[in-house]
Write a protein that binds this DNA or RNA. Sequence first.
DNA 1: GTGAAAGCGCTAACAT
DNA 2: ATGTTAGCGCTTTCAC
Lengths: 349, 349
Amino acid sequence: MGASSRDSHARAATLHDVAQRAGVAVSTASRALTGRRRVSPRLVRRVQSAASALDYSPNVAARSLRLSRTMTLGLIVPKVSNPGFFDFLEGVSSGIEEHGYSLMVTVARGDPHHYRTLIERLHERRMDGIFLVTPPEMPDTSRALEAADTPTLALWKGPASLPLLTSTEEAAIGRAVERLAELGHRRILYLGLPESVPSIRVTWLEQAAHRAGLAVTAVMIPHRRPEQPLQACIEHALAGPDGATALFVDLGLVPALMHLLTARGLRVPADVSLIAFGESPWTLELGLPLASISHTMQALGTAAAAVMIAWLKGERPAPLITVGAGEWIERASIGPAARASRQGIDRVQ
Amino acid sequence: MGASSRDSHARAATLHDVAQRAGVAVSTASRALTGRRRVSPRLVRRVQSAASALDYSPNVAARSLRLSRTMTLGLIVPKVSNPGFFDFLEGVSSGIEEHGYSLMVTVARGDPHHYRTLIERLHERRMDGIFLVTPPEMPDTSRALEAADTPTLALWKGPASLPLLTSTEEAAIGRAVERLAELGHRRILYLGLPESVPSIRVTWLEQAAHRAGLAVTAVMIPHRRPEQPLQACIEHALAGPDGATALFVDLGLVPALMHLLTARGLRVPADVSLIAFGESPWTLELGLPLASISHTMQALGTAAAAVMIAWLKGERPAPLITVGAGEWIERASIGPAARASRQGIDRVQ
DNA sequence: GTGAAAGCGCTAACAT
DNA sequence: ATGTTAGCGCTTTCAC
């Protein structure tokens, strides 16, 4: 133990201690440290050195009580294992941190009851603002939120009463679908993992396909031992003269899918076009130039942070904000619809 | 707006308001609500109904100030995009939540300076405990922690002054390596992503290999456009009579690797044995029974939570705690060392 | 069993 | 520019 380390049983130094050591009043010490009002430079120095001598660390709880502001934001996320989710968290965290805010994170189970509990919990802790991520099928939780009267920003989707932040992923999907239409594709197969957060994707994809005159078959692969194995799904969907010629898949399914396609002798994009939701550097550098709807979760996080910070400064956000975090990236995994090889595919089945 | 919703400009009800409405003293109201001392059932009911009528929500900041306990735990994690990290977070979160604690999450950039800043920040907020995850190459941050005098638990690795929580992954790796030795393998190639959190894996792997008399080539694939593309790496490592016959890879590399191996006509496990760090249901169900060192991050999270809760109850943790969260799972992707097909592999190069 | 009052550490009026 | 004081909302002695 160095001489400077305090006895671990001594209570932490308070502003009072600092003021006393510097020979000034507590209010002066407060002003000197926070800089919120003019104090003579001489005293500022004295207070500062007293503070550092005592290892003074302001008590945020006391400050919060006094100012009715906790400088803390809450984040409620559903319990999903989306690979990109940590990036989102990081975006939010770094975005608010530089403005002096901290982040309180709670992970909700699926049920609305738990959501309500967590909202209450954050309310008791008097969050200055809340980021709310609800699973798509979540019923209304707005009552619990109303009571709290806390600036709350919904991500991806949420109750109509809340400002909503989404990304340009929808537009990107639209562009991808249009491109497929140009290439002569007529039917798309979507393979998704149920626990991927933005399952609005499916809706977006369906709408875009409708506009472009394409048909969509959406298949959510259940998490545990699917009754209809993925393999059967795909073969069925790709088969026949009306079979899908293009595949949209969650990135997590790509390895399995590639394996399966290779095993069946189907080539990308000669036999089937492939578009992934999400990017991974490893799919790119290795002879698999995978076209994708890239979605930088981190960008969405920082955007959310920025909107919230502005809100706390009095600038109420628009009801719907779209962030440029989604992008259509065309790569060699898509090509003209493989009408010619239909027969070959039929044989597979 | 329902009749019960308060005017959004009215300040939140305080305990004083509740007491007044129930016709009791604030102290009685406090006791009735917290149940920390005996209050007549009649009054308890009166206070409770007054509280719910006023939508009373206790102010945690005030309580913290009074009790010198925030009921909040801090988590510091390095800025890495490890897929399983969110699971860990979830484990910690749910583990502490049921004991009434909340979680404050901060994401650190690589540098020690930022770590210190974040630790200070958490200290100002008077966390009751801190979970610390440092990247392996992080220099000592213990001075900042000492000052805080807050129960701090290190995960995976950390300064010697702190109790450390690791998993049985090390043992699992040992078992995997022994099995490979049995199967006649002599050289292992490890392919890792640099940003995977527990890069102590490499150390563990090397130690285990040494014990079993095997050689290890560890290659960390740089994130951006590697000068030595993965492809060249692998071909070089697998080639020659002394080439590696078994591959340990991070799960994120599996798709790329599979593609590459398939393209080169190398079969698993006939030509090369494959072991992944991590599990994904999609690699299993689809003709790719991938042997793995499975590591349930969530289990590690809940374990960390449990240790911390116990600590806060006065039960100081052992300096080193090993959690059974890592497991060696043998599957068909490993087999006897492919001495016979050496020539075929050489031809590939 | 209940009430009155002190005080946790801080900031912002209000005085000087 | 600096000091004095009230009070943020809560729990806990201390009296009764």
